[in-house]
Every structure is written in structure tokens, then in C-alpha cells.
């Protein structure tokens, strides 16, 4: 703090401090506190607020356990998000390794640009593009039928498949970059030493590259899991009525059910879940918070 004032002088230092304080208090902490408060109160008519019915209660939280449909969707969201995370890791690890270890320098930068360019387009538009690709009468089915892999078109968008594909694609970069950063810092001689001692590529990855990339893997997994669990656009567009996401339920409580208190409780449960996931990942990969944000 004193360093901030010393470097910028007190007027500018004070302005910076106030801006940061405004951001944290007004934009981060207050809305969350408001939501928590909402979640512990019953959904009342305006003139009942402050009245005898306006008491703190756990009813909103109990709803999730009582409603088997909602609870099922909640569990499915967790499982599917974990699956998306794993799938993204499997897809991105070879890409990141290729970029960081085999290409390096300008070639890697060019390939990375190719990866980034699609993300200049809005997420919803990209998801719509997948909708077209995966559609019953879409190009993917046309190609698969023409080549003879399928006898007749498949309904890709029926189950969870479309949602999974869309999410893996949407969150690709959030996995590639942490992995790339982690693998890039690996000394080439480490890999060569392992190879020289007779290790196969599989063993080199298992014993040398992956242990080194652990913080990157943890960071990527946390980001993708949180984005997937909190995703709204992808399941809304690529999902079918029987592949609903927990975020859609929350949305419904807020904007269709008009029950903000119930929605706030559900949103808070989702937040707790994500925080729990972060700590579980940190424990699994034995990395500290400092290593994650590196």
C-alpha cells in the first residue's frame, strides 16, 4: 500500500485504491451478499416484505433435494461438466504439447493464431455454427452418409452429445493456454534424458511431462469445469429438452418463475460446487493457489 503511494503520489494512489475498492465492494462483494440474503428468504409479495412472514429460512435450499427432477439435473450437470473437462483435457494435451515442445517460436505463434481466430466471433454465433454442423439435415450427417459410415442421418442434437461437443469446442483455449504455459517451461533436456535412458513416449509423458505440467492441468481443468457448469448458451442452443443444464433451471427461476429467492439459492449451490471443485483439484494435483495463478 505504501509502495503504491510512493510510486504514484497520494492523489493518483488514492484514485487507484478507490477504483479497486469500488470494484471489489460494489461489483463483487455486495451483489453476492445480496444474493445470499435473497436465498435465505421466502418468495413474498412486495407488501409482505418486512412483515411477519419475512424470516430467514432454508426452504429454498431444501427445494433442490425435494425436487427429484431438479436434483437429477444438478447431478447430471456435475457429471457432464466433469466429462467435458476430461474430454477437453484429452483433446488439448496433444495440441499444447505439440505447440510448446515440438513447434516453439514463430510456428507455434502462427498455429496459436489459427486457434484463436474463431474465438473472435461471439460464443453464441459459434455455438449456432455447431448447431448447423450437427443438425439432422446438416453437413456432418451428409458427409457421413455419403462416405458410407452411416446408413441414415443421426440425431446428434438429441442427447448430451451435441452439448458436450459444443462445450469442448467453446472452452478449448481455456485448456490449451494453461497447458501450453506449463509444458513450455519444461527443459528439453529432461525429455531427452528420459528418452536417452530408454523411455517410450508414453512413459516420458507419464513420468516427466505430465508431472511437470500438473499446475497447468489443474488450472485448465478448473477453468473448463467452472465454465461448463456455469454455461447457459451452449446447452440452451445445442441441448434437447432431455439434456437440460442446471443453469437453465436457475434462469427459469429468475426470469420465468419470478422466484428470485429460489434462483439465488440454486445459484449459490452451484457456486459452492465450483469452489469445492477447485479445492478438490488442488488436492488431487497437490498444487497450491499460488501455483494455479502463476
Amino acid at each position: 500500500m505504501s509502495a503504491l503511494f510512493r510510486r504514484h503520489g497520494w492523489p493518483l494512489g488514492l484514485v487507484m485504491l478507490l477504483i479497486v475498492a469500488f470494484w471489489i465492494v460494489v461489483q463483487v462483494v455486495l451483489p453476492q451478499l445480496l444474493m445470499i440474503d435473497f436465498s435465505f428468504r421466502p418468495n413474498l409479495l412486495p407488501d409482505e416484505m418486512g412483515g411477519p412472514k419475512d424470516v430467514l429460512t432454508l426452504t429454498n435450499y431444501e427445494t433442490l433435494w425435494a425436487n427429484s427432477v431438479h436434483f437429477g439435473i444438478f447431478v447430471k450437470t456435475i457429471v457432464a461438466s466433469a466429462a467435458v473437462t476430461l474430454l477437453t483435457l484429452v483433446v488439448c494435451y496433444p495440441i499444447a504439447f505439440h505447440l510448446a515442445y515440438e513447434l516453439k517460436g514463430p510456428k507455434a505463434a502462427r498455429l496459436m493464431l489459427v486457434l484463436v481466430i474463431p474465438f473472435w466471433i461471439n460464443e453464441i454465433l459459434r455455438t449456432f455454427a455447431w448447431y448447423i454442423v450437427l443438425a439432422y439435415a446438416g453437413p456432418l450427417n451428409a458427409v457421413l452418409v455419403a462416405v458410407g459410415i452411416l446408413d441414415e442421418p443421426m440425431r446428434f442434437l438429441d442427447g448430451n452429445g451435441g452439448v458436450m461437443v459444443g462445450m469442448v469446442y467453446a472452452y478449448l483455449l481455456f485448456m490449451v493456454f494453461p497447458l501450453y504455459n506449463a509444458i513450455e517451461s519444461l527443459d528439453v533436456a529432461q525429455v531427452e534424458a528420459a528418452r536417452d535412458l530408454g523411455a517410450t513416449w508414453a512413459r516420458i509423458h507419464r513420468r516427466v511431462v505430465i508431472p511437470h505440467a500438473k499446475p497447468g492441468i489443474a488450472t485448465g481443468c478448473i477453468m473448463v469445469f467452472m465454465l461448463a457448469a456455469g454455461s447457459y448458451a451452449v446447452p440452451a442452443l445445442l441441448g434437447s429438452p432431455n439434456s437440460r443444464w442446471f443453469t437453465e433451471i436457475i434462469y427459469n427461476w429468475f426470469f420465468e418463475g419470478g422466484n428470485w429467492n429460489q434462483g439465488a439459492a440454486y445459484a449459490f449451490i452451484l457456486l459452492l460446487l465450483c469452489v469445492g471443485f477447485i479445492f478438490a483439484m488442488m488436492k488431487t494435483f497437490r498444487v497450491s493457489l499460488g501455483e494455479l495463478t502463476r
Binding site: A189, A193, A194, L197, R207
Partner: peptide, 10 residues
């Protein structure tokens, strides 16, 4: 077997 300049111990 090679001994690397920076040793490259794991």
C-alpha cells in the same frame, strides 16, 4: 547413455 550439460535430473 548421456550426461547432459545441465545434468537434466528429474
Amino acid at each position: 547413455a548421456m550426461i547432459f550439460q545441465n545434468l537434466a535430473l528429474f
